[in-house]
Design a protein around this nucleic acid. Structure first.
Lengths: 199, 199, 199, 199
DNA sequence: TATGAATGAGGTTTCATTCAT
DNA sequence: GATGAATGAAACCTCATTCAT
C-alpha cells in the first residue's frame, strides 16, 4: 500500500531518515527491520532493496554522520592569522551545532555504536585512537609553545574528550543551554580554568 | 568446574562472577545464557534456579556494582576537619581504585547498561539525574563559599562527569597511568586549572 | 544487449537462450529470474511478458529440447533396407551429436529436471516409462528375430538406458572422446560385447 | 507435545530417519526443516539442537550412506583364491543389496546430491573422478591379463557406471527384479556379452 | 538441586511475482 | 512493450525459557 513509488534516491533517503528515528528511539539491538520498514511505510522486502542488511543501514548512518562530524574539525594551524584558541573555539562551535542539530545521530554514534560488532568496534576504536594520538601531539605542541599547561598528555586528552562527549551527547537535553555559543563558552572556560576557583 | 556441591550463595556468586566475565567480553547482547552457564560449568537450567532471567543477572551485577560505586562517594562536608578539596580527592581516589580493580564492571556499567531496556534506562537516568542535581547543588554551594568558580552549573557538572567517566572507563587501558594516585592528581589538576596554560 | 527492438519471437528466443546458459551454470534452483533477466539485458518485469513464471521457461526449454531429442530417434524398422544395427547406430549417432552440440541442455534434462515438481516428475516419468516399454518391446522383437540375446528385458533396457544416459551427460567432458563417431563405436561395442573378453 | 524425551542418540537417529523419508519424497530443495521436524514430531528448534542446518543433515545422510556404500566395494585382487569375476560379482551383489534395502538413500545420493552446492559437487565430483580413475586402471589391468576386451577405457568405464547407476537407482522399482541375485546375474551378462546376440 | 532436551516466538533474509509508470 | 520499485509469503536460524527426569 503505502509505497507510492519513489525515485530510488528519495526512497533510500526516506528509509535512512526513518531508521535514524527508530535507532534513536530503541537503539540498534531493539530496532528491527520491521520497525524501520513500518515506520517508512513500506514492506519488509523493500528495505532489502536498499540496504544489504540491518547492520549495513546502521553503518551507512554512522559513516555518513561520522564524515560530517569529522568534516567539522579543522586542524589547528599555529601560523594562521586566527589565534589557536579562536580556532579551537570554532571547532567546538561547529561540533556543538551538529550536536544540537542532530541529537539522535549523536546519541547513536556515542552510545549505540560501541560493542555492536567486532568490525564496528575496530573502526570506532581506530578513530578514537587516531583522534587521541592527534590530540596528544597537539597538546604536546601546545605545551612546547606555552599554550597548554604541563601534564600527562594521554590523560589530559581523555579528560577533554570525555568532557566534550558528554556535552555533545546531552546537548539540548535537560538543563543544558540550547545555544552553541553558550556551550562553547563554558567548554572553553573549562579548558582554560577547570572547575575550581583560583586558589 | 561444576560439581562440588556449593551452598546456594556460593553457587550464585560463582554464576555472577562468570557472567561478569562473559558480559565484559561480549557485551550484554552477545552474551547468551548458554555462555554464562558454560563458563560457570553448570547446565542451562541451573542458571534459572538462581536468576529469574537473563536481564535479572545483568541487573544484579549492575545493582551490586552500583551500590559499591556509590558507597565510595562521600558527601563533601564543608565543616569537616578535612579540607573540601582533600575530601574530593579522596572520593576520586576511591572511584579510580574501583575502576582499576574492576574494569569489566566499569565497562558494563558505563557502556552496556545504556539502551537495554526502558526500565533500565529509567533507573540509570534517575541515578544520573540525582547525581547531577546533587553535584549542581554542591557546585553552587562551592561557588557560594568561593571554592568553585562562577559558571553554568549544569554544564559544569556535565563536563566534570564526562571527563571522569572517560577516565573511569579507560583506567588501566592504553597509555593511561595504572595508578590511582596518578589519575587523581591529573583529574584534580584538570578541575583546578583546565587544560590550558594561564594566559 | 537490451535495447534494439526485437520482434516478440526474437526476444522470447533471446531470453530462452540466456535462461539455458544460466540454468546450465547454476542449476534450476539456484538460477533466479533476476539472473536470467540480467543475462538477457532486460528488466525483471520483461521476463514475465514472455513467460508465465520461472517454472514455465524451464519447462519450455525442456519441452523443446525433449522434442528435438525424441525427433532424433527413429523407430527401428526390421523391414527397411538398412540393417537394424545400422539403424540403431544412426539413432545413437544423432543422440551423441545432440549431446555434443548442446551439453548444457543435456545436463539440465538429465540432472536438473528430476525432483523439481510433481508435475514435472510425472511428465518425465511418463516419458521414461513409455521409452522403456517401447524399448522392451523392441528388445523382445529383437530376441524373437535373434538379434538380441535372451535375458530379462526390463533390466536389459535399464542397463542400456543407464549406459547411454551417462555418455550423453558426459559427452565432450573429461577424458571422453569428443567425436560422435567414436562415442557411437564404443557404445555399439558395449551393446554387442559387453565389457569383458570372450571367455 | 510429541517430544517424549529421548536420549540424544535416539533423537538424532529419529530425526535422521525422518529426514531420509522427507528428502526421499520431496527432494532436498522442496524439503523444509519444518517438514522434517513435523515428521519427527518435534519443534523446529529441536532440529537445530542436532544439526547445524538443513544442509548438514543432508550431508550427514549422504556421508553415512556413502561410507556404507563404498565399504561394500572391495578391490579386486587378481592373486586371490576367488576368481576376479567372482569378486566382481560379489561387489555387485553387495551394491544391489544396499540398493534394495535403501532405495530412498540411493535415490537421494544418485539424483539429489548433484548440483546442490559447490562444496557438495566438489565432493561428489572427486568421488566419481577417483572411482573412474580406479576403474580405468582396473580395466587396463584387466585388458593386460586378457580379462577385459580392448577399447577406450574411459568410455567403457562411463558406460559401465551408467548402467550400474541406473540399476541401483531403480532397483525394486517398476518391473525390475526384486532380488539381488537376479540383478547381479543380468548385470554380469551385460558386462560379459552386451545386449546383442553373438553375430 | 541439577540437568539438558524441547519449545516456539521472534527476527532475518530471499525472491517470485505484480503493477504503476 | 518495457521498466524496476514494491510486495509479502516462505524459509531459515537463534536463543531465552520451561519442564520432565
Amino acid at each position: 500500500m503505502a509505497g507510492t513509488r519513489k525515485s530510488r534516491e528519495e526512497r533510500r533517503a526516506q528509509i535512512l531518515a526513518c531508521a535514524l528515528e527508530v535507532f534513536g528511539e530503541k537503539g540498534f539491538h531493539a530496532a528491527t527491520v520491521d520497525d524501520i520498514a513500518a515506520r517508512t511505510g513500506v514492506a519488509r522486502g523493500t528495505f532489502y532493496l536498499y540496504f544489504k542488511d540491518r547492520r549495513s543501514i546502521f553503518e551507512a548512518l554512522i559513516d555518513d554522520f561520522f564524515a560530517r562530524l569529522t568534516s567539522q574539525i579543522r586542524s589547528i594551524d599555529v601560523e594562521s592569522a586566527e589565534p589557536p584558541l579562536t580556532q579551537l573555539r570554532m571547532n567546538l562551535h561547529r561540533l556543538c551545532r551538529l550536536a544540537l542539530d542532530e541529537p539522535a545521530m549523536m546519541k547513536i554514534l556515542l552510545q549505540d555504536a560501541s560493542g555492536l560488532d567486532a568490525a564496528f568496534d575496530t573502526k570506532l576504536g581506530a578513530f578514537y585512537k587516531a583522534l587521541s594520538v592527534f590530540l596528544e601531539e597537539s597538546l604536546e605542541e601546545g605545551q612546547r609553545i606555552g599554550l597548554v599547561r604541563a601534564g600527562d598528555t594521554p590523560l589530559m586528552v581523555a579528560l577533554g574528550i570525555g568532557a566534550l562527549k558528554e556535552i555533545l551527547l546531552n546537548a539540548g537535553t535537560g538543563t543544558l543551554p540550547r545555544s552553541a555559543d553558550a556551550l562553547v563558552e563554558e567548554i572553553m572556560r573549562f579548558f582554560e580554568a577547570g572547575l575550581l576557583a583560583r586558589s
